[in-house]
C-alpha cells in the first residue's frame, strides 16, 4: 500500500465512508449519493473517511475511525502556503 502512495497517480482512497450497515453505499468511487446527505452536526457521529496523508516524513492512509477511543481535532483550511 505504501508503494502506491508514492507513485504519480492519486491512490483510490475512499474519501467519506458510509456508516456501517448502510448496504446502499459502496466503498468505491464515485461517491454514492447516500453519503452526500451525511453532514456534520454537533451531537451526531462524525462522518468517517479514509484518505492519504503526509505524517512524520512518510505517506500513509488515515481513517477517522482508527482514532476511536481518542479525542480528535479535525481542522480544515483553504490551502498549503496560504498566509493566515
Amino acid at each position: 500500500m505504501t508503494q502506491s502512495l508514492e507513485s504519480c497517480a492519486r491512490p483510490p482512497t475512499a474519501g467519506p465512508l458510509a456508516p456501517p450497515g448502510d448496504a446502499s453505499a459502496g466503498a468505491v468511487s464515485p461517491v454514492p449519493q447516500e453519503e452526500k446527505r451525511m453532514i456534520a452536526r454537533v451531537g451526531k457521529t462524525a462522518p468517517d473517511f479514509e484518505t492519504t496523508a503526509f505524517h512524520q516524513g512518510a505517506f500513509k492512509l488515515v481513517k477517522l475511525s482508527d482514532y476511536a477511543g481518542k479525542w480528535v481535532l479535525l481542522c480544515f483550511y483553504p490551502g498549503d502556503f496560504t498566509y493566515v
Partner: peptide
C-alpha cells in the same frame, strides 16, 4: 474553508 471539529472518543462531534 476554515472549519474545525472536536470529536470525542465515541466519534461524536
Amino acid at each position: 474553508i476554515r472549519g474545525r471539529f472536536l470529536i470525542d472518543p465515541d466519534g461524536v462531534i
